[in-house]
Amino acid sequence: MNKRAGPAFYAVVAVFVLIVLFPFFWVFLASVKAPAYLYGDYAFDVIVPKYTIDQYVSVFTNHPFGRYLLNSFAVGLLTMGVSLVVASFASYAIARLHFWGKSFFLGVLLAVSMFPQIATLSPLFLFMQSAGLRNTYAGLVIPYTTYALPLAIWYLTTFFRKIPYELEEAAKMDGASVLVVFGKVLLPLVAPGLFTTAIIVFVDAWHEFLIALTINTKEAMMTVPVGIAMFQGEFTFPWGEISAATVTVTFPIIVLVLLFQSRIISGLTSGAVKE
């Protein structure tokens, strides 16, 4: 299948990439057009008489968009931290130690990763309400960690399994306890796996909408996806500002993707293919 790619092939690829990226290009254009040119005769033109960055300024001054970003980062990083700690202990035990109920636990994890979040929403809401955790970071970090755990545990377990037993045996010979073997020998070896898991857990938390929409309803505690969805008024859509906000949140993601492409792909596809 390694025939040299011809011009027709490149044309198809170019069209495909164009379709994928066009919406982003168009939104970027809308974010820098002067508001008057977003509507009417100029609405479909790339070249307009006036460009501006006012809409970016407005997003941060007229809307608490900075606050949304801060909330999303805080929730994402906290979820990432808690999930990694809990998952790395659990995955080591699953990969290396024998204990009763292991396959049952794995089955439960699989089921949890498949069941729809809305099926847990009403008790979760009532619980957060009565525990006073609505409109707090904990109110989101707790459910996000729960839903990140199955993925994180599976992924880290495959990483632990790849490490040769000899390394542990050598350390055990020297009299190291299970915890020392785990912390000093294995954890540094699975660092790449931890890193990939961290990115994917963070991105999932950054994306989550349903729980954020119901638990954190106060404007100061909203996350980015909910905040952007709330930009729309009852009948009006400030498209210029919405576009500027969209570009602002998409930009860091593009940087992240370009930097860690191969790690993200290996993380996403693990489990779907046998290695």
Binding site: V20, I254, V257
Partner: peptide, 13 residues
Amino acid sequence: AAVLIPWATPTAV
């Protein structure tokens, strides 16, 4: 990389 960008954008966005 281009293919990953739609995945990396929140669905709500």
